[in-house]
Nucleic acid binder design. Structure first.
Lengths: 345, 345
DNA sequence: GTGAAAGCGCTAACAC
DNA sequence: GTGTTAGCGCTTTCAC
């Protein structure tokens, strides 16, 4: 059972002062080369590992970044976390993750916990639209970056997300190019930016192609699979009146639900109905027919967030005050083309 | 820009001592009810949030658990992390994640970093079979739990994993019950417990069903998709000599690769060849035909690990020494039945 | 170049 | 019940 020793112990063994040892450990100047070597050797010998907790207390910085997400199992968030970690860990930062399980209450609890732990920065995929708890952070001086969803707060906010409106434009554009004019849509909650902006982009794209927006073709769900299923059923029930040839579903789980409804109606994809989904991952390449889907460059969202964090963190370290600006960093979504869209002749 | 205040500041404002405030904050006894209320009110007013860093330094415990995994994007690890978090966060513990990206070097780097941060416990899905760096932890007094893979170390080790041999038995059993006697196998690295135990279970199951083990039916890969593909091709190339009717592939990515090879040979699953995979997830239910696969109860591995951690942590707190025992906690794998296995008549 | 000492914010032993 | 004080392990200023 080895024990890690402290600066003080090392200093005593060598008959030097703690400050000398500290300087050697931290590669500071003003240490005679000979002394430095003696110290470095002793560090090995006595199994010294710097205590980051003590350092944190002294420096008022924990080199720790809190990342709060609704569901770490979603590839989207897993990949983002990985991207952040890749960028920040070489700089000595670690990531504390919190999985809120889509619960506002958990989100608040975790925000509080992380605040106590004095994280140096926060990345938040909030499910709390009017998030009051996060104001504590926004009023403090640590960097906060929102991802995925942006809360409705009357304060400057920084975010890294895809351009949600653009995503819908890309989807509609693709369908139109394949001859579709009657394009149904299943939207998530328009309370959230992810829902609101996507539907706005959809409408705008239709209009710019000279297609009239038909509210009978739009259904609103809550991102859950079952809602996607139900929305799709409603759409299909009215199919003879509305005669749409394609459907664009604006979230992953709702896409799955919608496809189930389509199959249940005995319709074939894409022969009977064309489908464009959102965030559909098919790592295995086993889905058949493969689903044409809007995708987020997740890794890039992660690395971009990481870089932004480092930038802000460095800025802070150089003693700047934390002037928050309202900055939305947008990354480009893209269309992953599968076999779920059929040409309308 | 609000600032969080300190115990000392609160104490001064109220003309009481820091210890009184501390006692009130921590709900300790020996505080007059009236004083407690005054303090509690002041905490609100002056925006006091306990500084966990200072607490950690004093208590020599950070209430932080390090979780080191090769790839956080894999559903397996994502779900395990979520499970751990669910169990430990109500006890005030947070999780620091480290994604080693399957690299031994990164693993070592992260272990060092986390050691400096003085994590209270470590969960490790190692890729470093002879992991020397982890010995630092094993020689220290903090709990260490291995998941997924177990390194070859000559010290007592605790782990939470599925029963890998059992997994193979379940797979083989199922195939035999469906009339298969010539069952090919694609194995990961037998250097790793996940490979070694799975192939051992496969052989044992065959024997217990009176089937001779045929080494021509076994191929060894390295868990990567492409190796699964290549192994499957080799097997198929010899199909007329070996005449197997089914194949059991012992890892997720290799399963994907193998299926691609099978399709490339123009064979249908399951009509021409039956397939049992490992760790195949189909959240969307979109894969067709659905793949019968061994599955790990991931969430349970997570929660079991979390509980084990709490147990050990509580044990420590009550001042016990950390006697390590060699304990493998096994959870039961299960077979998720799809449509990829055909009856041999 | 080196050392002494203050102090980061807190807990806990001890004194009153 | 409450206050005083000594540290937890480190960095950093200032004196030598």
């Amino acid at each position: 059972m080895t024990r890690t020793s402290t600066l003080k112990e090392i200093a005593q063994k060598l008959n030097v002062s703690v400050s000398t040892v500290s300087r050697a450990v931290n590669n500071k100047e003003y240490v005679k080369e000979e002394t430095r070597e003696r110290v470095l050797k002793a560090l090995e010998e006595y199994n010294y590992v710097p205590n980051e907790v003590a350092r944190s207390l002294k420096k008022q910085s924990t080199r720790t970044i809190g990342v709060v997400v609704p569901d770490i199992c979603e590839t989207l968030f897993g990949t983002i976390i990985k991207g952040i970690d890749q960028v920040v860990s070489p700089h000595g930062y670690s990531i504390i993750v919190a999985d809120t399980n889509e619960s506002r209450k958990n989100e608040q609890k975790y925000l509080e916990l992380l605040y106590q732990k004095r994280i140096d920065a926060l990345v938040l995929a909030t499910v709390d639209l009017n998030g009051r708890k996060v104001l504590q952070y926004l009023n403090s001086k640590i960097p906060v970056v929102f991802i995925d969803n942006i809360p409705k707060l009357k304060v400057p906010i920084e975010s890294v997300t895809i351009d949600n409106a653009k995503a819908s434009e890309v989807a509609v554009e693709y369908l139109v190019r394949h001859g579709h004019h009657r394009i149904a849509a299943i939207v998530g909650s328009i309370q959230e930016t992810t829902g609101y902006e996507r539907v706005a982009g959809y409408k705008r794209a239709l209009i710019s192609h000279g297609i009239t927006v038909d509210d009978n073709l739009i259904r609103y769900g809550n991102y859950k699979e079952n809602e996607g299923y139900l929305c799709m059923r409603e759409l299909l029930d009215n199919r003879y009146q509305t005669s749409f040839t394609s459907v664009y579903i604006m979230s992953e789980m709702m896409t799955f639900g919608a496809i189930k409804a389509i199959r249940q109606y005995g319709l074939r994809i894409p022969e009977d109905l064309s489908v464009v989904g959102f965030d559909v991952h098919d790592k295995a390449g086993l889905v058949h027919p493969s689903i044409t889907s809007i995708r987020q460059p997740e890794a890039m969202i992660g690395t971009r967030t990481g870089e932004l964090l480092l930038e802000r963190l460095a800025h802070m370290e150089s003693g700047q005050t934390c002037e928050r600006e309202n900055e939305r960093f947008l990354v480009e979504p893209y269309l992953e083309i599968g076999q779920s869209v059929w040409d309308v002749i």
